[in-house]
Amino acid sequence: MVASHQILEFTEIARLRDCIESISVSVVDDCIAAGSLAGEVAVISKAKTLTLPFEHDFGVGAVAWSPTSNILATGGMDGVIRLWSDSEGDATVASGKGWVAGISWRQDGKEIAAAIGKQVVRVAVGGVADSNESARHDFESTATCLAYTTNGQRLGVGSYGGVSWFETGDKIVRHFPWKGAPLTISMSPNGKWVATGNQDASIHCWKLWSGDDLQMSGYETKIQHLDWDPNSRYLAVGSVADISLWDFSGRGPKGSKPIQLAGHARHAVALKYQPQSQLIMSAGAEGTVCIWRPSPGKQSLVANVNIGEEPTCAVWSRDGRSVIVGTALGGVFEVDAHVV
């Protein structure tokens, strides 16, 4: 039997000068922000595409829209964090030595945290012109990834040696030690687990309150993409060719076999559950964007398309009806992901 799945339509919506390093979609008007390694940031709305009036020297590292307003945070290889909004313009709110590896907004939209080289910097955000650095902490090693807990009370920062936790202020209130180099971090929506994807081709998970941990290793490559399903039952892990889903219900994933989703020829460059659904979007370096509905024993691939360029990042639109994909050649594509 030939498995059938839907082939998706896609359109190019912008072209930047170099590889798209980061993409974000705003809560207000579904505006898309894309940052490239040439340093420019484009804001793409239904009405127009705007190139922001500043650049990050040597490339953009991260773009992230506020979860509550129309403020965009950007960071780059110049070690600078800027805020921008269409009405207020832009302002530098923090800087440091090293590249910006990530920017995370607290859920209330009143604080951002950024990993800049070996530092994590936090900024209290009022408006673009009304934001001030509130804390800064030096790590021994590069801060590679960061995320707030679902309730916004703590900030977790991954660097070589484990995950460090902050409340307000610059002191580490807790540390989950582990001798390894995390590359990405993801909190389960129910606030129970934190997982890191690592350089040594493993994932490491900790129970947030007890600190009990477990590790799944033996992947073919380093793990750069993780995401939890909205019910916090499955942890999706992107590796080469396969996406694996670990079941954290009941006794947890220890000793179990993950659900495997095979549909990519090369490594994953994006992996994300659709907001409030069990659909998963994945993009592989070979050019394919896939939509999955994992169902054991049945075909999980619902739809896919090859966009003809190497994707480097991808996110869902706010309404979950399309996937915005950035490519190595600077392309920004909108894939119509409305599946039947």
Partner: peptide
């Protein structure tokens, strides 16, 4: 042992059009 800084820099360099 590996050089984490090199992995990051080389990875970034490889992505560029240049």
């Amino acid at each position: 042992t590996v050089r984490g800084d090199l992995i990051r820099i080389l990875g970034n360099l490889m992505k560029r059009k240049d």
